[in-house]
Design a protein around this nucleic acid. Sequence first.
DNA 1: GCTTAGGTTTTG
Length: 724
Amino acid sequence: MPVQLLKVIKGKSEIPLPSHLQKEDLKHLQEGLDHTNKYFQDTFVVAGFKLAKSPTAREDGRHSCHLEVSEEAGSAIYIYTAPRTTAASETASVSVAPKYVYTPLNHLKDGTIVNLYGVVKFFKPPYISKGTDYCSVVTLVDPSNVKLTCTLFNGNLDALPKIYKVGDIVRFHRIKIREYNGQMQGITSAGFASLTFDGTVGAPVVPRTSSKVYTFMDEEQKTIEDLRVWAASNLSISGPAAKLSGVQPMLYFDLTCQLVGKAKVDGSSFLLKVWDGTKCPYPTWKVPVEARDLEGEKVLLHQLRNLTVDILVYDNHVQLAKSLKIGSFLRIYSIHTKQASAENEDFSHIEFHLHGGTCYGRGIGVLPESNPDVKELKTFLESVDLADSQNMESMSSVELDGTFNSVTDLESHLKRCQQLSVTVLTDHQDLNNTELKTILNSTAPQQYRIRAKLRTYKPQKLYQSVKLHCSKCNSLREVPDGGDFDLILQGAAVTAPNPDLHNTSWYNSVMWTTQDQKQRKIAIHFVKHDEMLQQPEDTLLMVEGGTLKEVWKLTKRFKCVIPVRSTEDHLELLDLSAPFLLQGNIKYYGCKQCSTPKPIKSLSSIAAEQRPSWEPSEIAQVLGIEPLQYVFVMRFTLVDGTGALNAYIFDYEKFFQIPASEILTNNFLQEKMQMTMNTLCPPGRKLDDLPWLECFIKSYNVRDAMKHQVYYQIFDTTVAEDVV
DNA sequence: GCTTAGGTTTTG
């Protein structure tokens, strides 16, 4: 029921009460009379109440009647507020915002219309009902641990809550409560409105809503944040979503994907061709359809043929599937993976079905481009190298078998991880564990030993976790991609090598001109040792005018490659956005802020050493470069049943036992890291089934002009030996 | 204005 604030100026309400309301004195209240248009005034106004005999009047000696108010009965409450003392600069008007009251789920009563908050424990994405409306069924739970299943109808799809996953948080206004089969049930009433929020601890509190006008204040923001923390350690929400690369036969899963093609199959089924950028490890079925029935971009369908999977949707889902736009991002809920062996084939294949009905939330949801999961998926899809996927044509379970012989092995491995801890401390073993709740309620800085579960982590794409760190100025920088380097090389190639700088006492130079139209001049300067050229694998060289490909080829043969350019009187390094040194697969970068590059001839001091080792750190030093270190930066959301906190990992090598400098160019290490993360936080698992992590964390304060925050960092912790 | 569905996997 709406509660409205009235501003009183000089004893009079600024906004008058509705004229049909008549003031009533408490003394004159009588049972059996109609009080619909009556009000009495105290510090607040109650209008449109029902009068009932107070059952406790005899005991408590209060008035023999009490008032019953409900939105359904058309009741309204007006509260008078005195005007605030306003500063001259402040506007004199006081806002008259409706004050909403939210009912906890354990205080719901039959026949009332209430406002409430809840965490989504289960939901059916909106589907077309057999009547005239869309329907969505949502089960909520709140810290009272009472569940409420709501059946929501609306002819306008947009008016239903935009729930994308279990754990989302909703605020419902004006939902009607009824009793059904001995339980409370929520159902849309006139004026129903909802807001939906991401349930992730620490995520921005931005409501998803279709209504243009809604109230949302600091108080509500706090409610959402509190519910997130409560849900993180009390509600069984599964972790990171499953990918096609992680599917297993004979199960149900939710898939976030992009629609590439669609086709009619027959009256009761419809085909969706989707991809998520990863490769299903099993052979997948292809549903035969007429070429002319297949909608989608032909070239793309062909390019992605090894990455798309066919999902056959049935019955009630057909109508919605038909209306989907090619290219849109979908979450398909409760897809069934079915193992089937086709006749005349030695190998069984995997089929994807979205069966008829809406049990277990089965259905299709369209995700907006603003959805964080969609943003992440888009970035990943853009990074997928299609040439690679063509080569992976026959990639199958054989590759999985290299690591785990079967699903059963993987299961037993995970089971072991649930009992023991998947991470161990490298120090402080004598310390006792502290609960997260205690840590959250304490001041920083402090250090703690904790035992917690990894609910989720960011970024999900592990290559995004690699950054460059300057230990001098403590800045973090993204690792530049090959394209940036290529542009710098192209820019440098515009200036031709200066022949005056060739063939000095400490290097020999060769130069040639490309045969193509560009007539590009390339110079390579081989550094000598003891007046002699060394073996290629021991040689450091400088290159001028080379392309990305040429520089890369040189790194394969020679120990060190330094891209340079000529000035009038010396050779110098390129812009520090480019690596100052390439060695093996690793590109070494310098900090733009902290470096003062020196001319290349400074290197001659190392060349003159007895046995030059060409250590990157030594090269950086003589060239005046402050080298950047590769580092993994990740955010772990940890929970332990008492609370949830975000802790950062800042790791060169110690935590994951993988050098951050090598992961970007090493497929094996990337797979190893993914496996490690899958063990720490198995995708698609419920909270109960997540393994425990033993961690050492420290809290620290971060203050700026605007606010003060406490951050947490994991340290002196490493992944357990048998997990690596 | 009323109905729709009312959580607990198809059997293609």
